[in-house]
Computed example of a mutant assay.
Amino acid sequence: MPKWNPATIQKIEQRSPTVRSFWLELPHHERLTYQPGQFVTLELPVTERRRDGWRSYSIAAAPNGSNQVELCVVQLPDGKGSTWLFEETMVGTQIMAKDPGGVFKLPPTPLEKDIVFICTGTGVAPFRAMLQERLPKEKVNFHLIFGCRTEEDILYREEFEAMAEEYDNFHYSLAISRQDMPSGEGVETTRGYVHAVYEQHYPVYRADLQFYLCGWSEMVDEAKNKLAEMGYGEDQVLLELYG
Rank of each mutant, 00 (worst) to 15 (best):
S217W: 05
V116K: 10
G147I: 11
H29I: 08
E13L: 05
L85P: 11
R49P: 08
L42N: 07
E13N: 03
I154Q: 02
M1D: 11
V204C: 11
E229Q: 13
E199Y: 09
Q38K: 13
C119K: 05
P100A: 01
L155I: 08
G186T: 04
P36L: 10
T93I: 10
Q14M: 00
L85H: 07
Q75S: 05
R157K: 07
L213R: 06
V116L: 10
Q14N: 11
E229L: 14
G243C: 04
S66R: 12
K226G: 08
D208Q: 01
W23H: 05
Y198L: 09
R55Y: 00
E159N: 09
E70Y: 01
Q179N: 03
Q38Y: 12
E159L: 02
E43V: 08
V187A: 07
N64F: 01
W84T: 03
R191S: 12
G192D: 10
W84H: 13
L131Y: 07
F146N: 08
E151V: 14
S58L: 01
Q38D: 11
D168R: 12
Q35G: 05
D208A: 02
V140P: 07
W23N: 07
G233R: 14
V187Q: 13
R20T: 08
F86Q: 07
I95W: 03
E152Q: 14
I12E: 03
A97S: 05
P17A: 10
T33K: 12
P182G: 00
Q75Y: 06
P36T: 04
P107R: 02
G102H: 08
G121M: 11
P27T: 04
I9F: 01
I9Q: 03
P100Q: 07
I176W: 03
C119P: 11
E87H: 02
E185F: 04
P6S: 03
E48P: 08
I145V: 15
F170N: 00
V187L: 10
K80N: 04
M90N: 00
P77K: 09
G81A: 09
F104D: 02
F146P: 09
A7G: 15
L44R: 04
S16L: 05
L238Q: 14
F86H: 12
P63V: 14
V103L: 14
G101I: 10
Y205K: 15
L85G: 10
G233T: 15
R49Y: 12
F160P: 06
K80R: 13
R20S: 11
A129Y: 00
Y57N: 03
A125F: 02
D208E: 04
S82T: 15
A7H: 10
G37M: 06
Q68V: 09
Y193A: 08
T120Y: 00
N169M: 04
V46S: 05
F22P: 07
Q10L: 09
L209D: 13
V91W: 06
R31D: 09
A228T: 14
A60C: 13
V237L: 12
G101E: 14
A62K: 08
Y242R: 09
K139D: 01
L24Y: 06
P110Q: 11
A125D: 13
S56K: 01
V40P: 06
L241F: 12
F170H: 00
F86W: 05
L111H: 10
T189F: 07
A175D: 14
I115G: 03
R128Y: 05
K98W: 03
E88F: 01
G101N: 10
A164E: 02
Q10T: 15
P126K: 06
E88C: 06
F22H: 02
P63G: 12
D99A: 15
G102R: 12
E222Y: 07
Y205H: 15
Y242W: 14
